[in-house]
Design a binder for these strands. Structure first.
Lengths: 138, 138
DNA sequence: CTTGAGCCTGTAGTTACTACAGACCTTACA
DNA sequence: TGTAAGGTCTGTAGTAACTACAGGCTCAAG
């Protein structure tokens, strides 16, 4: 990579370090279309700009919030080409929020059962276990 | 399947219906070793017994509680061949419980962020959205 | 000029299933 | 006895969202 080429951007490794994203994941995002194909050097090296970094940080943050890649495509307006309206974003967010709440409710039920059964467990070095009985008989 | 063969057990479809398990999943569990290979009719049809049903219900219930297949193998004593002691089960249960609680904490953080950003959203038919800004800038 | 690091590609592995295709078997009914 | 519908058999491929290689270039530093 020449100085001229490098001037205007960073490499994939640079982008990975700058965002905390796994270097292979960047390529994966490119392949699946959520990150645009960057220009290349003569040798074929990707050249990323600040805009790519911004986009990648958006994706990573949305993933942290549990949005699916499909959701993220929608949030970025990659499904119909146009930027989504505030209403569309809100709808998607609320749908996702409902899923998150449902998941929390599931996990709380699980937590209650696990905590209760673990309490019943003696922790002795014996093969007979009330936890296994609880799993079997419910 | 002759009357004699059928007498002693049920088919894969019967087992699926009796347990609520997907019929293909039964074969998958057999392939991965958590469900023992059942005897077969002369034509190669699987013949399941009540013991298989009990085992399958245990697996399904443990899955409902969020245990991984590896955990389940451990709970059933398929890792070292011997039935696990109560202490081993307790340890596995508490490790899993800790993961469940960590996941709940994650999801609650996510829930808080989503709920807060969704509130800020006007829901108007405009392309400018505070939710997207929130994802971008945090 | 060499050495080591970084980048390139394509592909395979992960978890826990789920869904076929194409062949075979069984059952019910005429 | 014939046949049509439905069940079962096998192997394989697909799912989400990555992650990790192998084998080959390229680049930067000494």
């Amino acid at each position: 990579m020449t100085d001229h080429e490098r001037e205007s951007g960073f490499t994939r490794g640079d982008l990975a370090r700058a965002t905390g994203c796994n270097i292979e994941t960047i390529r994966y995002y490119e392949k699946t279309g959520v990150l645009p194909d960057p220009p290349r050097t003569d040798a074929g090296y990707r050249i990323y700009s600040a805009a790519h970094a911004t986009r990648l940080r958006f994706i990573l943050r949305a993933r942290e919030l549990g949005f699916s890649m499909e959701d993220i495509r929608g949030l970025m307006g990659l499904e119909d080409g146009a930027a989504p309206t505030c209403a569309e974003v809100k709808e998607r967010t609320e749908r996702h929020l409902a899923e998150v709440r449902a998941k929390i409710a599931d996990l709380r039920r699980i937590e209650a059962v696990l905590a209760a059964t673990a309490l019943r467990c003696s922790g002795a070095e014996v093969p007979d276990c009330p936890v296994l009985d609880a799993i079997s008989g419910s």
